[in-house]
Design a protein around this nucleic acid. Sequence first.
DNA 1: ACCTGAACACCGTTCAAGT
DNA 2: ACCTGAACACCGTTCAAGT
Lengths: 236, 236
Amino acid sequence: MNTLTRRQREFLQREQLFLDAARQILRSDGVAAFTIDRIAGNTEYAKGTVYKHFTCKEDILCALCHESLVHLGEAFSKALTFPGNSRERMMALGTAYLQFTTRFPEEFDILIAVRTNNVRQKASEKRVEAMIAADQGAHDVMRSVIGAAIAAGDLTLPTTTSLDEACFGLWAMAFGLLALAPANDVIDSLELPSIPIIMVNQMNLLLDGYGWRPLSTEFDYQQTFARLLKHMETLQ
Amino acid sequence: MNTLTRRQREFLQREQLFLDAARQILRSDGVAAFTIDRIAGNTEYAKGTVYKHFTCKEDILCALCHESLVHLGEAFSKALTFPGNSRERMMALGTAYLQFTTRFPEEFDILIAVRTNNVRQKASEKRVEAMIAADQGAHDVMRSVIGAAIAAGDLTLPTTTSLDEACFGLWAMAFGLLALAPANDVIDSLELPSIPIIMVNQMNLLLDGYGWRPLSTEFDYQQTFARLLKHMETLQ
DNA sequence: ACCTGAACACCGTTCAAGT
DNA sequence: ACCTGAACACCGTTCAAGT
């Protein structure tokens, strides 16, 4: 089954060591403290050795994002243990995303930064592709929920809208809300409720736009959200 | 009227010089070439002089974003010369945003990067606040369109949704689509139409969710979009 | 009072030398 | 064959010296 040599296994193990160290530095001391020196120091390897694994710093960022996206995909899958109708299950994904970004703000920060052309151009093609694949993995979970809704008859997409497009639209809305949220938190000139409430409200409106039944006018999704938060705690 | 001394005016003029140089470097050579050295060199000032204006590099980024957001706000205002119903005018804003990001991808890149906590913490409070104010300026244009729609009876927001929240939701959707778009362009595994088409479709669905009349089922917004693109050309 | 640019600190990246 | 870390290049930031 295991076709890798010991050498190869050890190499992969060390790579994981570097990535774990990198993530830990990021979480505890932020992006500013995120240097190759620290990664090497914390793992007791030389700087040069880090470059045996990654072509450049941006490559490490992409590798971290790859893992973060895998984690997010797993969180999505876990969130689907929540019992409910198809639309409540979509809300479960939104809640998992919200929770991920609030629990790991630094990781969400690099998920944002990695959208930049600058980062994507510097990183190796290999890493960027792996990252995109992990992104797809999380998308797939979302796609399955949309597919189930269609199968259950809760959702009928307009003929002009493919399942992939609906998935992308929902993802973009969630990403946009979460990426713009912190900045708007600060502004008191705006009459805005807390981010979770905005998220629920806006998701409801968008899903109403899709005609995803039961509509928000026919069902109490605020209560679903409250139940979701409780359910998520039990998962952790 | 002019309460500034010559000194102060010259100082502001030089600041503008630096910002113009910075923007030009960004547009022509990208984020990677964006260094204090080049800004100083291109303007024939010393590096130290740049620091008389900006506390750090991130401060310059925020100043650039400030300007970009002002430009975007102006583009929004111009877009409102488009004649049409209230919802078509909201589409005009979306089209202006789309056009801005495609015309100036590097500037949109820093608008994304500036969302990161890292940048906001390093930049001076003054710049960040000015940037947020410019953001509000663009929001205000959008708010006026939503307000007009309500006044015209085309839109009735749910009691749970404030005008500010609706504005934020629309903004987030547009930002999310445009920020995530380039990455998804690459993937052929997804069945996605071009970004403009996605944008129109998703905006239609969201606005349908708001119940903004005429609904996309009652009106040909594809045709509106085509007309919008032509109208925008005449503005330039 | 203001500008300068040499000097400094830091960090990403490389590669000759060592094991 | 692989790891090391000194050395290099680059760049953001500061500040003593100059005008």
